[in-house]
Amino acid sequence: MARVLINLPRSAKRGELIEIRTLIQHGMETGYRPGPNGVTQQRDIIRSFTCLFDNEEVFHAELYQAIAANPFITFSMLATASGILAFTWTGDNGFAQTETRALTVT
C-alpha cells in the first residue's frame, strides 16, 4: 500500500466551493530510463486518478510518463450534500488503491 495524503475540509456549507488536495507515494518510472545494468527499466506509472462522490464521478485525470514521482493532484468541487468521497489511483503492474473520506455539508 502506497502512502497517501488527502486534504479536504471536514465540513462545508451548502454551495461552497471546496479544494481537495491529494498526494500519493509512487515512483512514476517512465520506461525510458536505463537501470544500473544498462537495460531500460520497464514503465511503472499511475495511469488514472478518479474521485467519486457517492459513486458519481466528480473528477478524473489521466497521467502520463512526464508526470513527476509522488503525483500531487488538486481540484475543487461544489459541496451540495453530505457524502463519501472515494479516491482511486490505478496504474501499471496492477497498481490500484482506493481511499475514502467523509464530507459533511451543512
Partner: peptide, 13 residues
C-alpha cells in the same frame, strides 16, 4: 504545507 510536502509521506511511513 504538510499536505503538499511529499516528505510527509515518509514521515507517515
Amino acid at each position: 504545507d504538510d499536505t503538499a510536502n511529499p516528505g510527509m509521506l515518509w514521515v507517515q511511513e
